[in-house]
Amino acid sequence: MITPEDIFHIGSKKEFEKITLKVFRYQYDTNKVYQQFCQFLNKDKTNVKSIAEIPFLPIQFFKSHDVISSNEPVQHIFTSSGTTGMQTSKHLVTDVRWYEQSYRLGFSQFYGNIEDYCVLALLPSYLEREGSSLIYMVKDLIESSRHEDSGFYLNNYAELVAKLQKLNREGQNVILIGVTYALLDLIEYAQATSFPLEGLGSNLILMETGGMKGKRKEMIREELHAQLSAGFGVSKIHSEYGMTELLSQAYSMGDGLFECPPWMQILIRDTEDALTYVPEGKTGGINVIDLANINSCSFIATQDLGKKYPNHSFEVLGRFDHSDIRGCNLLVV
């Protein structure tokens, strides 16, 4: 039996490897979709002895199959966004407490006590649909902050600008988390109405979740972050790397370099051979180990391109050609 205590208290590389292999064996036994995929690659519990030998399930399986490693009833279904007629991913969650513990501990590792912040969320395209794991997380962070001004904003930019200015005058630490196109829209609104945002930098953490959602042209990260920095008067743009198919998030506190919590790890696979890995600093496909995904699949081969660096940070560079456009920090270069 693998418990939250096992997953969320990993303290060393050796411990991570031990728990990861234990999770692999558990999911091989309990997840029929994953087991069949492993068998197709001639992999099983007897011949997988290291993390490098673990098969990573292509993320597209969350669109076509029920990826689940539990006999318990499904408590919650998270779904990805998509245009009309597009097949969307679904993440079947049998115990949502794993997700809650993952994002709460992950956030506190990078940002400290949530009660030190007022949390403002500008996530219109996520609020306009059901099943968003991002909305579930941010709603909980808003409530956990216990700040009377914390909340969601749809398209009410005037109220949000006024709130940001008020909180800045009060010296309140603020996290503004927003989908990319809406943050750019907010800057343009403030400029057009002569409500300056540039002076907010000292107490503001600006966190973009990626995604133009077809509202604006895609930009390279450097161009986007330059516009956001100038518009809000902050020196660094923070980012969150997460997706429907994961129950953990990596965070960037600037310069597009992400770090994972201890129960999550990134590997970079060769774009020509999905079963081999490339050296640090070389571009490849992003594989994610997310041990919080204990009841679905912890080994996901994403459609994202990236690089990993010696200090275990990583960079997201774009997506494979012909992949679906999906907003969660997937910036096209």
Rank of each mutant, 00 (worst) to 15 (best):
I2C: 04
E5M: 02
I7A: 01
I7Q: 01
H9S: 14
S12T: 06
K14A: 15
E15M: 09
E15S: 10
K18G: 05
L21D: 00
V23P: 13
Q27E: 11
Q27R: 08
D29P: 06
D29Y: 09
V33K: 10
V33L: 03
Q35P: 04
C38P: 01
C38H: 00
L41H: 05
N42A: 08
N42K: 12
K43V: 02
K45E: 03
S50G: 11
I51T: 09
I59E: 11
I59L: 09
F61C: 08
F62M: 05
I68A: 05
S70G: 09
Q75S: 10
T79D: 08
T84H: 08
G85A: 09
M86E: 15
Q87P: 01
T94M: 09
T94Y: 07
D95R: 11
R97P: 10
E100L: 07
G106D: 03
S108I: 12
S108T: 15
S108Y: 10
S108A: 15
F110P: 10
G112M: 03
I114W: 02
C118H: 06
V119C: 07
A121S: 04
L123V: 02
L127V: 05
R129L: 00
R129E: 03
E130V: 14
E130D: 14
E130R: 14
G131F: 03
L134W: 02
M137Y: 01
R146L: 12
H147M: 09
D149M: 15
Y153S: 10
N155E: 06
E159G: 12
K166A: 07
L167M: 05
R169A: 10
I175L: 07
I175C: 09
L176C: 00
V179D: 04
L184M: 11
S194M: 10
F195C: 14
G199K: 01
G201P: 02
G201M: 03
L204A: 01
L206R: 03
L206D: 11
M207P: 03
E208A: 07
T209W: 00
G210K: 06
M212T: 06
K215P: 01
E218C: 14
E222T: 02
E222D: 09
E223T: 14
A226D: 12
Q227R: 13
G233M: 02
K236H: 15
K236G: 13
I237K: 02
S239C: 02
M243I: 00
T244P: 06
Y251N: 04
F258C: 04
L267C: 08
R269Y: 15
L275M: 13
V278Y: 13
E280N: 14
G281V: 09
N287W: 05
I289D: 08
L291A: 07
S296L: 08
F299G: 01
T302I: 04
Q303S: 13
Q303T: 12
G306D: 00
H312W: 08
S313W: 11
G318N: 00
F320V: 14
D321Q: 11
I325L: 08
V333W: 15
